[in-house]
Amino acid sequence: MSNPLKIIPAAPDSESGVSRRAALQTLFAGVGAGLALPGAAEAQHPIHQHLANPGAIEQAQQRAAAAAYTPEFLDAHQSKTLEVLAEAIVPGSTAARVAPFIDQLLAVESADNQRAFLGSLGAFDMAAITKHARPWVALTAAEQDELLREASTADAKSPFRSHFQNVKDWIAGAYYSSEPGMRELGWTGNTFFQELPGCTHPGGHED
């Protein structure tokens, strides 16, 4: 099993506590069997209990169940604009559900950060309207790409570049903390390593 905390679909009668416990037990059994532990002696390792964290599992289930996500903070237009921008700035963001996660974060952010994000998102609409008299989501892919190139290469102190950087940081942070993003960076779920590699060169890299 590649995913140590793979989500199983909620049972039709998942309102029932008994069914829920049964479902979790099934999941835990799968988790234990799939862990890359260093040896057979590890079969009784506390990791089995550790991963059987009902809170974490429950949260993951809730998120998975929220496929039809309703934004908490952004309005529908902002949410769509962010989704389109995210996919262009960090490809794969739509599948990784970057926009809904950023919305979830923004809902608990400080007013200053909320304001700054909305300002940066709005700057893309402003650029689109100024140049094409249409909002960002109505631009063609080529038109969006042209403006993104402009934003990403503008003077570092220019407002458009700053807004681009702000939105990009949010998107990149959300993407690379998602499961697809982490796996892209090498995450396997294995957290047990018997050795730590180090320098083996004789001479200690003296001049």
Binding site: P4, L5, I47, H50, L51, N53, A56, Q59, A60, F101, Q104, L105, V108, E109, G173, A174, S177, S178, E179, M182, W187, G189, T191
Partner: peptide
């Protein structure tokens, strides 16, 4: 051993 993506806010809030 809990991955960030299994936290509600992935330690980003």
């Amino acid at each position: 051993h809990v991955a960030a993506y299994n936290l509600t806010y992935r330690d980003r809030a």
